[in-house]
Simulated scan of single mutants.
Amino acid sequence: MDSSKVGFVVSKTVGNSVVRHRVSRRLRHVVRAQLESLPPGTLVVVRALAPAAEASSSELAADFSSALRKVLR
């Protein structure tokens, strides 16, 4: 069975390297909790926009869940 894979794109528009890495870590944490709900072999790319730097983890989780529901319909 193929495992699902997730990649992250966090560009310089999000902030400096410290901010980008913080956003990446928070996104990884959010996505890790929902990996089991993805069909096997799913490939996902998550692109962080500039507002992600100021968003709370719960806001990131809500946005990701919403986007995932739309894609999996």
Rank of each mutant, 00 (worst) to 15 (best):
S66N: 15
R47P: 00
G41R: 07
A50D: 13
H21S: 11
L72V: 05
R25T: 03
R32E: 13
R20C: 07
S66V: 09
A67E: 12
R73M: 06
S11K: 01
K70E: 14
V30I: 00
V44P: 02
V46Q: 03
H29L: 15
G15P: 02
M1I: 12
P39A: 15
S66Y: 14
P40K: 05
V45R: 04
L72K: 03
A52V: 11
A48M: 08
V10N: 01
L43I: 14
G7M: 04
V9E: 08
G41Q: 05
F8G: 00
K5W: 11
V30E: 00
A53R: 05
K70W: 09
V71G: 06
S58I: 11
V30R: 01
V14G: 02
V23E: 01
L43F: 12
K12P: 03
A62I: 01
A61Y: 06
A55L: 11
V6R: 03
V45F: 09
S24E: 05
F8M: 04
A55H: 02
S24Q: 09
S3R: 15
R22T: 05
T42C: 08
K12Y: 02
V9C: 04
R47E: 12
N16M: 11
Q34M: 15
L68G: 01
P40R: 08
R47G: 13
V46I: 13
R22S: 10
R25S: 01
S17G: 05
P40E: 08
P39T: 13
L38Y: 07
V14S: 00
T13A: 10
S57V: 13
R69Q: 13
R73W: 07
K70Y: 00
S58K: 10
A52M: 07
V31T: 08
S4D: 03
A61S: 14
A50Y: 12
S66I: 13
A67Y: 06
D2L: 14
T13L: 06
S56T: 15
P51G: 08
H29M: 11
R25Y: 03
T13M: 04
V6E: 04
S56P: 11
M1L: 11
R47I: 12
V19E: 02
R47N: 07
R32S: 13
F8W: 01
A52Q: 10
Q34S: 15
K70A: 12
S24A: 13
N16I: 10
F64Y: 14
D2V: 14
K5I: 15
V18Y: 02
F64N: 08
R69G: 07
V14M: 00
L60D: 01
A52D: 12
V6Q: 02
L49P: 05
R22G: 06
R25A: 08
L68F: 09
V46K: 08
S17V: 06
V18M: 00
P39W: 10
L35K: 09
V30Y: 00
S65A: 15
V6Y: 05
A50T: 11
R73Q: 12
L72G: 00
L27H: 04
G41M: 05
R25V: 04
V46H: 06
V46A: 02
V19L: 11
N16R: 04
L35S: 11
G41A: 09
D63A: 15
V19T: 13
N16A: 09
Q34V: 12
S66P: 08
V9P: 03
R20P: 00
L35E: 14
R28V: 05
P51V: 10
R28E: 01
A48T: 02
S57E: 13
L38H: 10
S58Y: 09
S65N: 15
S4W: 05
R22I: 01
R28I: 00
K12C: 04
K5H: 14
